[in-house]
Design a protein around this nucleic acid. Sequence first.
DNA 1: GTCTATATGTAGATAGAC
DNA 2: GTCTATCTACATATAGAC
Lengths: 187, 187
Amino acid sequence: MGKRQDIVAIAEDLFYRQGFGQTPFTDLAGAVGISRGNFYHHFKTKDDILAEVVTLRLEKSRSMIAGWEAQSADPADRICAYIRILLANQELIENFGCPLGSFANEMAKAQHPMTAGARQLFDLFHGWLAQQFTDMAAARPEYLAMRVLQFSQGAATMSNTYRDRNFISEEVARMCEWVRRQDRREE
Amino acid sequence: MGKRQDIVAIAEDLFYRQGFGQTPFTDLAGAVGISRGNFYHHFKTKDDILAEVVTLRLEKSRSMIAGWEAQSADPADRICAYIRILLANQELIENFGCPLGSFANEMAKAQHPMTAGARQLFDLFHGWLAQQFTDMAAARPEYLAMRVLQFSQGAATMSNTYRDRNFISEEVARMCEWVRRQDRREE
DNA sequence: GTCTATATGTAGATAGAC
DNA sequence: GTCTATCTACATATAGAC
């Protein structure tokens, strides 16, 4: 019945909401519905769970990207789909921040080896965004991809701090327009 | 000799570098040079230390603001001074992120009462930035202040994740130019 | 696979000697 | 004011019964 996958799926959610360091096995056990001791039948250490959580997030991120690619062939539309995560996941971001940014920061502060995994997640989106800008014939696609990441991280922190939905909506619209202005193709 | 203040000063630094929840008394004790048990002569609980740390940060922030005001009478210059924290504290931000944003996120995830204190810190800068934009006769000063906070939060996260100093320098310069373009005074 | 019991370490906090 | 010793709770992790 894939209990191991259940554990990883629930850990992904709890690590996001509470932070890795602030999520004891007790919480995981309660959510999964098994005893604490039983975790060690599936995983050797807590860090091993974290490693699989990062793998799961990478897979989920690739799925999201595949979804945006299936939904539109226009690179600007695709980038806007990424930006609109801020609206699609608004309540989660208000309560817990951006899963990428907050995780990367926790790993950095803990000087945890998974800092590299957090960066992989950023790289995945950065590479894909840069490809979309390349397809738009935009100048400096990698720089523009950084700009989009920077924007979404800043907006997520503002959302987490102020929960001002009017502001976020305006910013999402503004950024999507900005993306379209980068288009240098003959249309 | 103000040992109480020493504790708060060191706690402020360690809470920033490691996070509040990941900083045990052992670490504080080692850094201050007293024993663990002795903390309770000065503070009743760990949360009491955190409360004073937030107070200290508010004081330090007011001092920074006073410094920028003393250094220039031009509101655009002053806002740029704020933005240049990204360069002045570059190494710290690369290693530990923005003290405001990362603290606010940790408090939010822990559903800690000090979430309000974290927001106070943001409010302090937001109010001051909005005043500068007002002095520039800019349209929508509070919105523009949010834009500056959003930018600095995004840039700090990018700095923390990628440590790309060329990117951060370019962004600081770009944002300062943007600030000056908001000036609607007859000059 | 799952459990209980337990080992081991460490967290925050207290008591009382000096 | 500072210390050591200690308390209670809880963390990760292990061992071994079922």
